[in-house]
Design a protein around this nucleic acid. Structure first.
Lengths: 204, 204
DNA sequence: GCTTGAATTGAACGGATGTTCAGATAGGCT
DNA sequence: AGCCTATCTGAACATCCGTTCAATTCAAGC
């Protein structure tokens, strides 16, 4: 027995990636065996090697695909001209995009160490590209004196950490709706970087 | 041959935990074998079972120990009366504490899924206890109208995510000193939650 | 209807895994 | 000096791992 009825590489390929994504996110790359992925797809382990040269490349393709999507989705997003509105748009986009891809986000933060150095470097570059998009907004707002940011790089990383953190606790059927969460976070991000009306500005 | 010269359980025990902590953080719980931990200690794999009933318990003890330290360290921290200063103290404490224990922090966020449900629940409880400490500060500030926070629970989680994020990029020999990083983050946290002088308060 | 090639099986490979345990040894106690 | 026990070794257990490959089967093109 071989070749199942109705089997095509255009069908099995995506199913392999979907199964791997789910299992890697749930149990971790190292803890998931090729046989488990195969079982999830409904296939023997050997068949996976029609779709990936090895386990490591399977992981990399998932992470790379996620970053490709992220960068192109942000590129396709309408961009306001005002830095304040740009920041608002970024915060909302980031939350929305990441909440819809929790498995991929989780893996992207946790399984980087399982990549070869070259593959890691490629992803790092893409990640930095995304961070630069936010930093550019902060810099623009600083130039036009709307924002008051001591260090744009540090602030970029701090804001992204805060926004991405939403993926660790948000529940679809929870207390707060997605749009409400978006709103609150976007507000908080704005307050954190916006210049405050002049006052006694001594530190706390 | 057995019993090495100068061997004591008070020495080997901590070394086992230290080796496990380092290796789990570097390669992940599932990817590290008992034989690797043993080799790091300079001992055979079987000897590890004098110090832990099994691998899973070894992980739990590390995570539990970390949370114990965290809660008692925060408990020992001098607590100001003013919510604004309390928040500042919390932010600085959190950054300082977490930056000095990056391995444990990393594991605490990544390896929770490798715990049994009971062990997971015990840690969750401790984590919530820590979060409640921050939320209490936010609530106090809200009552005294110093802070303007829409949802204290959400804000708590957002701030902790932001502060913990520092562990992913901070380098000892980097551009910014620890105290400078502390300062910037504490400032940002303050701005994010402090009530702004009344203005047209329309959202962006 | 036959042929060809893509898709898959199932067995096999060497090696690694967590854990157990009888036996060996060194250090402290008497 | 001699014993005792805490400490550790080294081998063994069954089971799993990622990966390869000849053999097999199905679907499509002629």
């Amino acid at each position: 027995m071989a070749r199942k009825t109705g089997s095509h590489s255009e069908i099995t390929g995506p199913r392999v990636r979907a199964a791997a994504l789910m299992l890697f996110a749930r149990d971790g790359y190292a803890a998931v065996s090729m046989r488990q992925i195969a079982a999830e797809v409904g296939v023997q382990a050997g068949a996976l090697y029609l779709y990936t040269p090895d386990k490591q490349t399977l992981l990399f393709d998932l992470l790379k695909g996620h970053m490709d999507e992220l960068l192109s989705a942000w590129g396709a997003e309408p961009r306001p001209t005002d830095p304040e509105q740009q920041l608002d748009a970024f915060a909302r986009f980031h939350i929305r995009f990441h909440l819809m891809r929790r498995d991929a986000v989780f893996i992207s933060y946790m399984e980087l160490r399982n990549l070869t150095p070259e593959n890691f470097a490629r992803l790092e570059k893409m990640r930095r590209q995304y961070e630069d998009a936010l930093e550019a907004i902060l810099k623009a707002g600083q130039v036009s004196k709307i924002f008051d940011v001591v260090d744009t790089k540090l602030t970029t990383l701090a804001l992204i950490s805060m926004l991405t953190g939403v993926t660790t606790w948000y529940r679809q059927d929870g207390r707060l709706s997605l749009s409400r969460v978006e709103e609150i976070y976007a507000d908080m991000v704005g307050k954190a970087v916006r210049r405050v009306a002049k006052e006694k500005s001594a530190a706390v």
